[in-house]
């Protein structure tokens, strides 16, 4: 019994102290920083103030916020549309192929996403691969102007975040009770009907989880608009980055971070709500 108690004590203290020091403490520090005053020499100083939160009234912040909602929201919807049929395919493919097909989804991630985003430039440039191919085939007469537009940013965001939509969707769809579909079939429902009345409602937790895992990171992906959008379309991530790394205005950057955490909280409530409706515990804690 002694060794078991030792193991319990050791692992519980390791886990709690790691989470305390490197997860809880940093979050609290960010909240505190957002309430301090900017200081050129020491990054921050007292007095405490709520003034940093007045950034929500500033034009630059509002612009970044609206852009983020538009670009992040758009990318999320596009990811969902692309990923759903794909995840459905993965969930229904023969068991022995599933492992390799899932691995194929994550292999591109072993090349850093910054490098892959740069590879997209090669394809999307005005004199890039896409335009050259289409021109050579005679399908278009004028090259598309995609590079440095929001279309390029959407492509970049969808490209980087697609697997984060695929995996939660796959996880819910593959666990779905297939006998429900057989029952629906026996009762005379056509495929269309059983999809909209059974598959889709049961996959709502996966949809909400996937959407959160795409939308939230999308708000912060500063390098995608930097590289593909020419830095004109600012995301909240670009705003935070410039406050922290260029303007040395940590309190306002931290306030933006707290603001983003609030958005995260809202999405989490939505997720809770969606899982309660389908009475499953969802994909995060199965």
């Amino acid at each position: 019994m002694k060794e078991r108690n030792f193991f319990r004590l050791f692992s519980l203290s390791l886990i709690s102290s790691w989470l305390l020091f490197f997860a809880l403490a940093p979050f609290l520090f960010i909240v505190v920083t957002s309430l301090l005053t900017r200081d050129i020499n020491n990054f921050v100083s007292i007095p405490f103030t709520f003034a940093n939160y007045s950034i929500v009234l500033e034009h630059a912040f509002q612009q970044a916020f609206l852009n983020s909602m538009y670009l992040g929201g758009g990318a999320t919807i596009l990811c969902l549309l692309v990923a759903y049929p794909f995840a459905y395919f993965l969930a229904n493919v023969k068991e022995k192929y599933r492992g390799i097909l899932l691995l194929l989804v994550i292999i591109p991630f072993w090349t850093n996403s910054l490098i892959r985003t740069y590879a997209l430039v090669f394809i999307l440039k005005t004199k890039g691969l896409l335009n050259n191919t289409l021109l050579a085939l005679g399908l278009i007469n004028e090259p598309f102007e995609i590079y440095y537009t929001e279309v390029a940013i959407f492509i970049g965001l969808v490209y980087t975040l697609l697997p984060f939509m695929v995996l939660p969707l796959y996880s819910t769809l593959s666990k779905m009770d297939k006998t429900l579909l057989e029952a629906a079939n026996d009762l005379g429902a056509n495929k269309f009907r059983s999809f909209f009345h059974i598959t889709l409602p049961l996959s709502v937790p996966g949809i909400v989880a996937g959407c959160s895992m795409v939308f939230l990171p999308a708000l912060g992906m500063f390098y995608v608009p930097d590289i593909l959008g020419g830095g004109r379309e600012l995301l909240l991530g670009n705003y935070v980055k410039s406050q922290f790394l260029n303007a040395q205005n940590w309190p306002e950057g931290a306030a933006t971070g707290v603001f983003m955490t609030a958005i995260m909280g809202l999405l989490f409530l939505l997720y809770k709500f969606s899982t309660r409706k389908t009475e499953s515990k969802g994909v995060f804690y199965e």
């Binding site: 520090f29 960010i30 959160s212 939230l216 912060g220 991530g237 922290f244 950057g253 955490t261």
Partner: peptide, 15 residues
């Protein structure tokens, strides 16, 4: 798991 990377990043910087 679900916090945006940028929020984690600035939290680590301050820590």
């Amino acid at each position: 798991m679900i916090a945006p990377d940028i929020v984690l990043a600035i939290s680590f910087v301050v820590l």
